[in-house]
């Protein structure tokens, strides 16, 4: 599974990078690399069962009071 995922990433890099090098799109290359690193970190972490930052509990904690207040107001 890990090997497969690695192959997918290699394929994407092989598919995208040569074109950017040829056209000398350095900004694009930099943005691609940063996003690709984030994507790799997240997917390998998920695959290996490591904790992945999850916004759901944060959003729930922030909007819990609002949700409760509206419910009370409108019931």
């Amino acid at each position: 599974m890990i090997v497969l995922l690695g192959l997918v990433f290699l394929a994407i890099i092989a598919f995208e990078v040569p074109g950017m090098l040829k056209k000398q799109q350095w900004r694009e290359l930099a943005a691609f690399s940063v996003l690709m690193l984030i994507a790799m970190a997240l997917s390998f972490a998920q695959l290996l069962g490591l904790p992945v930052p999850n916004p759901t509990p944060v959003i729930e904690a922030i909007f819990e009071p609002v949700s409760e207040a509206v419910k009370k107001l409108l019931s």
Partner: peptide, 27 residues
């Protein structure tokens, strides 16, 4: 791509997609 001022957004399609995919499972 507009955030960093790129002229072509296409290279970002797959990385953004993979991030989206991971979160579609994790959320």
């Amino acid at each position: 791509s507009h955030l960093v001022g790129l002229s072509d957004y296409r290279p970002l399609v797959y990385p953004v997609g993979i991030i989206t995919l991971v979160y579609s499972i994790v959320l």
